[in-house]
């Protein structure tokens, strides 16, 4: 059978069986959790209230977006500690630049751009620090990423190969693949996040998938039939 195109997903519908890429975490103060869960309160309204001098609305914004921000950063950077640092730094920067927020534009696009810029910077720093390290020279060491939960061994191995292929890709292609294929954003949503045109986002997605497939096949020992 020939392949069927995958269904389009909007970022807010992204749910995966293993864990949630979005959602509001438990264990927050009740006032913050209430604000975060209140669907009648838009992100822009929370920003307005923060600018008016309240802290809880900003904590609610953090609660709404911290999971998505963390997982995007994690899939770009590849390490939990770095992803956590990127997420925290992104929220601090967001708070400091709230006064510049343009209420006519989408909040999550603006925030994702901050997260993505920091994540790509972090990835580049990690790569330049790792260049020439013993892991890169040997190349065949097992992936050190720790995986929690009951994940089958073959799946863990496959995921390790996916991470290895993602590590070979340029940051700009990796960013598009993460946003589109892992987090389900459309190219129209990706373009403003990466501050590129829609055509550029599509071209990067096209080229990124092609390169991913080439590396993937090479890693698995030649083209699959």
């Amino acid at each position: 059978m020939f392949p069927q195109p995958a269904p389009r997903q909007s970022p807010k519908q992204t749910q995966t069986p293993g864990h949630e890429l979005s959602g509001i975490p438990a264990g927050l103060p009740s006032a913050v959790a209430q604000l975060a869960h209140d669907v009648t309160l838009s992100d822009a309204e929370l920003v307005r209230r923060t600018l008016a001098g309240q802290h809880d609305p900003f904590a609610a914004l953090v609660a709404r977006y911290q999971k998505r921000a963390f997982w995007i950063a994690y899939h770009v950077v590849g390490r939990v500690e770095d992803a956590r640092d990127v997420t925290q730094e992104a929220f601090v920067r967001l708070f400091r630049s709230l006064a510049k927020y343009d209420f006519a534009r989408s909040f999550y696009t603006w925030f994702y751009r901050i997260v993505m810029n920091l994540a790509i910077d972090s990835l580049r720093k990690i790569r330049s620090a790792r260049a020439g390290s013993i892991e890169d020279i040997l190349g065949g060491l097992p992936d050190s990423r720790a995986v929690a939960g009951d994940v089958p061994l073959e799946r863990t191995e496959e995921n390790g190969q996916v991470w290895a292929v993602l590590d070979k890709l340029d940051a700009k292609f990796r960013a598009v693949l993460v946003l589109r294929d892992i987090h389900g954003l459309s190219c129209r949503e990706i373009a403003p996040v990466l501050k590129v045109t829609h055509a550029t986002a599509r071209w990067r997605l096209h080229r990124g998938r092609q390169m991913f497939k080439e590396h993937w096949e090479r890693l698995q020992g030649g083209p699959e039939q």
């Binding site: 995958a6 992204t14 995966t16 069986p17 293993g18 864990h19 890429l21 975490p25 438990a26 264990g27 927050l28 913050v32 904590a59 953090v62 609660a63 911290q66 999971k67 963390f70 997982w71 994690y74 899939h75 939990v80 956590r84 997420t87 925290q88 990423r145 720790a146 995986v147 929690a148 939960g149 994940v151 799946r155 496959e158 995921n159 190969q161 996916v162 991470w163 292929v165 993602l166 693949l177 294929d181 892992i182 987090h183 998938r209 991913f212 497939k213 993937w216 096949e217 699959e224």
Partner: peptide, 26 residues
């Protein structure tokens, strides 16, 4: 197949990442 393997990464949990970590991060 290659794209599908990448999409499955979304379901992969990571060590020490749970609601407790997110509350602490908040």
């Amino acid at each position: 197949r290659a794209t599908g393997s990448m999409r499955r990464l979304a379901a992969e949990p990571a060590a020490d990442v749970d609601d407790g970590m997110f509350a602490a991060m908040n």
